[in-house]
């Protein structure tokens, strides 16, 4: 592995735009994704994340911009730019070194699990023995060996998701795209699959790009996250940075919880994360005063919501243990200047 290839991004999305009539789906999107990264595209529905994913896979044609992928070092023959950047947009979807795991999984209902997984390898024209070997390998990795001869209709949601994943990774793509991979699963299976996905990514050494609307999911799995809103990338950063240094009000509001306070600092919005807020019966030295309107006890910790006169938003504080104040009590609110986050005031 040369120095060059570790520094150059695997995937480069440059100035990509796409509109459907008057609706702008992607607006000058720029993203670079590194090799072996677990990357998340996060945003509410309609933010353009799925359009971007489908553009990378080849099912949408951007109006403008470029999407390139680093050529394979050990010649997969997928383009002339060996070692350099390959123009993805010039390739039809079936020629792109990119695989997609569909939100609905899109398993072929008329083929059993083994055939579903082998399908992509057969299209590469590999020999029978090699296909069988690689399929068996992946069946073991994903724990599906005993389901190999079963049709998708007879599988549970979690098992179907594994098949979809197996079908994609058996191709050993440079880049694996996952569209809302956990959304169809119930809560318990989802937690298991989160860990499973992370493990698999390490094991197979493939770059993952996950599209999701669930910030907790993105935060817990991804190395870096691009937050999207209205077709634009709002911020690209690792989870901790996104939480502690959001680039704007949208990101601050979308990631984690917190109170956005207008009018305390001139021309700026103050973001207070619950754990940064201290409340006490001491009024002296407190920055704000208010009345407790709500408390929640979560077992190990509690939150207390306080209404401050003439302020629309409640200020929420979290602290370990049981709630310390009753509803209706007047309290003082304070915070360390270092823990408060100042954001530009957007209209």
């Amino acid at each position: 592995m040369t120095l060059d290839s570790t520094n150059a991004p695997l995937l480069r999305v440059s100035s990509v735009s796409k509109a459907y009539g008057d609706v702008v789906a992607l607006d000058d999107v720029n993203i670079e994704i590194q090799q072996n990264e677990f990357f998340a595209l996060l945003g509410p529905s309609g933010c353009g994340k799925t359009t971007l994913l489908r553009s990378i896979a080849g099912f949408e044609d951007p109006d403008a911009g470029a999407i390139t992928i680093l050529g394979a070092g050990s010649g997969t023959g997928s383009g002339p730019g060996e070692g350099g950047q390959i123009d993805l947009l010039s390739l039809p979807p079936n020629k792109r070194p990119v695989n997609l795991m569909f939100q609905s999984y899109a398993l072929f209902p008329h083929m059993n699990v083994r055939k579903n997984i082998a399908y992509g390898l057969e299209r590469e024209g590999l020999g029978k023995d090699e296909i069988a070997e690689r399929v068996n390998e992946v069946l073991i990795t994903t724990g599906l060996t005993d389901k190999a001869d079963v049709r998708p209709a007879q599988l549970s949601g979690g098992q179907r998701q594994r098949v979809a994943l197996a079908r994609a990774i058996v191709k050993r793509p440079r880049l694996l795209l996952l569209d809302e991979p956990l959304s169809a699963l119930d809560r318990k299976v989802r937690a298991e699959m989160q860990i499973e996905l992370k493990r698999l990514q390490h094991e197979v050494g493939i770059t993952f790009v996950v599209v999701t609307h669930d910030q907790e999911e993105a935060m817990s799995m991804a190395d870096r996250i691009a937050v999207m809103h209205e077709g634009r990338v709002q911020q690209i950063a690792d989870p901790v940075t996104l939480y502690s240094q959001p680039a704007n009000v949208f990101v601050a509001d979308f990631i984690g919880t917190g109170s956005l306070l207008h009018g305390i600092v001139a021309n700026a919005v103050l973001l207070l994360r619950p754990e940064a807020v201290h409340i006490s019966a001491e009024m002296a030295g407190a920055q704000l005063h208010g009345e407790v309107v709500e408390t929640h006890f979560f077992g190990g910790s509690s939150t207390t919501s306080v209404r401050v006169a003439e302020m629309e938003t409640l200020i929420v504080a979290s602290h370990p243990g049981a709630p310390k104040f009753a509803v209706g009590e007047r309290v003082g609110i304070s915070w360390n200047a270092d823990d408060a986050i100042l954001l530009e005031d957007q209209p």
Binding site: A57, G58, F59, P92, P93, N94, K95, V98, N99, L100, F102, S104, A106, L107, F108, P109, Y119, G120, R123, E124, R167, K171
Partner: peptide, 22 residues
């Protein structure tokens, strides 16, 4: 489900191939 045809294409099938396979 149109996604099945997209899936075939994503796995390397040409349009003709995807038609006959899916």
């Amino acid at each position: 489900d149109r996604q099945l045809i997209e899936a075939a294409s994503n796995l390397g099938a040409s349009r003709v191939r995807a038609f006959f396979d899916v």
